[in-house]
Simulated scan of single mutants.
Amino acid sequence: MPISLKVTPNGPRLDPNLFILNPLQPDGNDRTSPDSLGPEVCLATDFHLKDGDMVLNQKDGPVTINPSGAPLSQTQNRNYVFAGFTNRSIYSCEMHGTLENNDNLDMCANFHPEKARLNFYLLMMNGVRVVFTKTLAFNTILTIRALLF
């Protein structure tokens, strides 16, 4: 008869830290709609119990993933780490009552590349102002020095 060993942490129950990660998109990719973001990952870290499921909320409905194969991290806390993959955009991710919304969906709504030129001009104008201010201060100091000595 084989011997089985089940290890359960004796510390307090920790809620997982959830992060929704997405890959870098190539230039020219349409980033105006949430569905164009592409495949994403929900990363859950620092949780003790592998009980319960990870729920990935997508456009077509929620997808449930069982984290029973989550590896134990080798850090001092010895917590579990699990990544839930999907080929669609994740609107939110939840596990053990913790919910993480996808902040990248908000970035898509406010993505305006035409404002980059205006920001560059404002940055350049501030740089020119700093140079002129330093020049004025330096010339003033040299003039006072020439008049006094």
Rank of each mutant, 00 (worst) to 15 (best):
Q25Y: 05
T45M: 09
T143Y: 15
V131A: 15
F47M: 03
E40W: 02
L148E: 07
T64G: 01
S4N: 09
V63Y: 02
N10G: 07
K115T: 11
S92K: 04
T98C: 05
G127I: 11
T98D: 02
A116K: 14
N57F: 10
I141A: 14
F120M: 14
L18R: 05
Q25A: 14
T86V: 07
Y80W: 13
L99P: 00
I141Y: 15
L123I: 04
V131S: 10
P23A: 13
S4K: 13
R88A: 07
D60W: 08
F19G: 00
F120E: 15
G28F: 10
R13P: 00
F82M: 03
V131C: 13
C93A: 03
N66D: 14
K6G: 00
N29M: 09
L142E: 09
E40P: 00
L148V: 09
P9W: 10
Q74K: 11
T32L: 12
T8D: 07
D27W: 11
N66T: 08
R145F: 12
F138I: 12
V55M: 05
T135G: 14
V81R: 12
Y91P: 00
G52K: 03
N79C: 08
M124Q: 14
L123Y: 13
P67E: 03
I3A: 08
G52Y: 05
S33N: 06
R78Y: 06
F120P: 00
I141R: 15
D60C: 01
D60F: 09
V128C: 12
D15G: 14
P2S: 12
T45C: 03
A83Q: 13
P113G: 05
I20S: 01
I3E: 09
H96S: 05
A44Q: 01
L24A: 10
G38D: 03
N102F: 04
N101D: 06
D106I: 05
V63Q: 07
N101A: 05
T8K: 13
P39W: 07
P34S: 03
P23T: 06
F19M: 11
Q74I: 03
A70Y: 02
M95P: 01
G127E: 11
D53N: 13
S4M: 08
Y121H: 11
D30Y: 15
E100A: 11
Y91L: 07
V131L: 15
L56H: 01
V7Q: 12
E40H: 02
V55D: 01
P62K: 06
K134D: 04
D51T: 12
D27A: 13
T75I: 02
G38K: 04
C93D: 02
H96Y: 09
S89N: 08
D103H: 08
I20K: 02
D35N: 06
L72P: 01
N29V: 06
P23R: 14
Y121G: 00
I3V: 13
N119A: 14
A116T: 06
F149L: 09
T140K: 14
R129F: 15
T32P: 00
D35C: 02
A137Y: 13
Q58T: 08
